[in-house]
Amino acid sequence: MSPPAYPPPRHLAGAPSAPAAEYDADVVILAMDRARETVEAVASARAQTGVSKHVWIADQGSDPENLAILKAAVGDAPDATLVRLDRNWGVAGGRNRATALGSGRAVFALDNDAEFDGADTLARAVRALDAEADLAAIGCRILVHATGEEDLSSWGYPPALLPRAADSFDAATFVGAGHAIRRADFEAAGGYDDALFFCWEEYDWSLRAINAGKRVRYRGDIAVRHKVSGQHRFAWSGTRWFHFVRNRLYIEMKYGASWPSLLPRFLAYQAKGARNGVLAQGLRAGPAALRLAAEFRPPAGQEHLYRLTPAARGYLARNDAAHRGGLLDRVRREVLASLPSAPSKPAAR
């Protein structure tokens, strides 16, 4: 299946195109300001050894000062290319367009505030994909850059699996801050859904890959370092909660869930949003998810990927649901944990 054709972005610095010869991997880094961190991420990617690669930096709207810093850092590098996209497509759309620029058999996406843990991290990720034909993607272990401790804000798996952070296991998704995807599987599953913008795009794509008979695997021995506080919590400002709730509901409906069946989840999200002062975002997310679902049409030839097979349901049950506990456990996490704790309640009068 051919990848979608996107309008060519504006070339700003570095090599004008991908290498003519075959090579192992593309490293994709999205940029929007945070110039110092982005330059360090690019340097980390270019320093990877034991693998043939090309580094793509796709800017989505940095201000002129930060863009100048990126252009100077990339310069005329033969193994890196800085481009400017026509607008901010978010994480999902930005990675789609940056990935389409290359031709390496693996694609490693690195957050612009992250770095590879070692000089051979990329090579090891490519070897991991090469070693197992049914492996579509691997999620890296995400460590706090300054300390090497677990980045708890980037743990995207069942909480019960956190003690196994140094191990490996099959999973239902991967964390976007550092991951590798087999290009052929990325294209076969249709890439990311641009409509998601950011949040849950990795899970949405993973569902299609799993439905096509592929696996997603967490590799605790392959790591990136993320420049966040080890105790960082979910950022409730802006529109993050809106996208979190909207996208999760939309994805469920894409794969056949009815709105009534999602009502308990929606109410749990509202309780959590109210507790954190963003109730309005969560309430707006419901109608927005319904609109996206009403507008969604599977790409021609990919309709089957949106109907989960018995094998896919079994995979998800073994590798995700089995680690999340029963309904009561989930309600406790989503609702009861969102309510004010006893010490914060007014004293009885």
Rank of each mutant, 00 (worst) to 15 (best):
A5N: 12
P9A: 09
L12I: 05
A15G: 03
P19M: 02
P19D: 03
V27E: 10
L30K: 05
M32S: 14
V39W: 00
A45D: 03
Q48D: 12
W56N: 01
A58N: 05
S62N: 03
P64V: 03
A68Q: 11
L70V: 03
K71F: 07
G75I: 08
D79Q: 10
T81E: 12
V83T: 08
L85H: 05
L85Q: 06
R87W: 07
G94H: 03
T99P: 01
L101P: 10
G102L: 00
R105V: 01
F108Y: 06
F108H: 02
D113R: 06
A128F: 04
A131R: 04
E132S: 13
V144F: 05
T147F: 07
L152A: 14
D170L: 13
H179P: 05
A180L: 12
R182G: 01
R182E: 00
A184I: 00
A184E: 01
D185R: 00
G190Q: 00
D193G: 05
E201Q: 11
Y203R: 14
Y203L: 13
D204S: 09
R208W: 00
G213Y: 00
I222M: 09
I222A: 09
V224K: 06
H226Q: 04
K227P: 02
H232I: 06
R233M: 10
F234V: 09
K254M: 15
Y255N: 04
S261I: 04
R265A: 15
F266W: 14
L267T: 10
A274I: 05
R275H: 13
L279G: 06
L283V: 06
A285C: 15
G286N: 08
R291D: 13
L292E: 14
E295P: 10
P299N: 03
L305K: 02
G314H: 13
A317Y: 02
R318Y: 02
N319H: 15
D329L: 08
L339E: 05
P346C: 08
A348Y: 09
